[in-house]
């Protein structure tokens, strides 16, 4: 572990600021993906182990849309909506059938879907890396220099977009009728059914919402990174960590945990580049041991 490197960075405003902005960007993108995972668990009671492929598909769909339209915003939107539709088919076609099954069956179903979709993606788009879809033109400007820290304006844009979506999501869950139905469904689905509310509808709309968010995360990420079928793996693992640390089913917890993990990643890369993953899992283990319900998880 390179403690000195970390101390150097923490005491230099340039390094501190650029790592912090980097961590914020990672954290916010992670939140988009993880919030869906935690929401799906909270309402449907299942862990979507295939959540990573939604992120990956978001990137591919956006890439394809960019090829066809050349418009960045539109492509990102198409990517996210496309994944939302995929999520609908996935839930209605497969997930629906294993709600009552045990964890092992659910894990294996998702594992199967990961294997299949990975190969389908390879068949459609080939197994070479695709280049990123690029940053929209208005952001193709020199980076900002704040306290000598190099900060690309586009990163700020991603942070603000994600933040905006987090706020919208929070409002949707706390201020709308849909939100209160979803929360009621998480606590007592039988009661809702007794009141004549279609819980099936709530289930798949939550799944679609979660898919849409993951797709959006993938599409936004595709602006700067190359696209490959395995790109969902590490974000899946990180989303698990976020879900557990934040408290399974808690959006607020996912937000906090995403920031923690984003920062751990960003500063961990300075302090112990080879053990950043290990560091995140260590945090997860500690949370599970000390507070199994997570930072903001509710008691069952």
């Amino acid at each position: 572990m390179e403690v000195l490197a970390l101390l150097d960075c923490l005491s230099a405003p340039a390094c501190l600021l650029s790592q912090a902005v980097g961590g914020l960007k990672i954290g916010m993108l992670l939140f988009l993906v993880a919030s869906g995972l935690t929401l799906i668990f909270g309402v449907l009671g299942i862990i979507n182990f295939a959540h990573g492929i939604l992120y990956m598909l978001g990137a591919y769909f956006a890439w394809q849309a960019m090829e066809l339209t050349g418009h960045f915003g539109l492509s990102v939107l198409i990517g996210a909506i496309g994944v939302g539709i995929f999520g609908l088919a996935f839930e209605r076609g497969l997930i629906k059938r294993v709600y009552e099954s045990n964890l092992l069956i659910q894990i294996l179903l998702c594992y199967a879907v990961i294997l299949i979709v990975d190969d389908l993606v390879m068949i459609i788009w080939g197994d070479e890396f695709l280049s990123s879809i690029g940053v929209p033109e208005i952001f193709q400007v020199p980076p900002l220099f704040i306290f000598d820290a190099v900060i690309p304006p586009f990163h700020l844009a991603i942070i603000f977009t994600s933040l905006l979506i987090a706020i919208l999501l929070w409002m949707l869950m706390t201020r709308s009728r849909f939100g209160s139905l979803v929360r009621a469904a998480a606590i007592n689905p039988k009661m809702l059914e007794a009141l004549g509310i279609n819980t099936n509808f709530i289930r798949y709309s939550v799944f679609v919402l979660g898919s849409f968010l993951a797709g959006l995360g993938g599409a936004l990420a595709a602006s700067e990174r190359s696209i490959v079928s395995q790109m969902g793996n590490s974000i899946l693992i990180e989303s698990f960590i976020v879900t557990v640390i934040g408290g399974m089913g808690s959006i607020g917890g996912a937000f906090l945990a995403s920031l923690i993990i984003g920062m751990a990643r960003s500063f961990g890369a300075v302090a112990m580049p080879l053990f950043t993953d290990g560091l995140m899992f260590l945090i997860m283990v500690l949370v599970l041991i000390l507070r199994p319900r997570g930072i903001m998880g509710e008691k069952k």
Binding site: L94, Y111, A112, I116, I123
Partner: peptide, 15 residues
């Protein structure tokens, strides 16, 4: 397409 076949086999067993 190893994953495709394997995935389908798992689906058959799971469902």
């Amino acid at each position: 397409y190893y994953g495709l076949i394997l995935g389908l086999v798992i689906l058959i067993f799971v469902l």
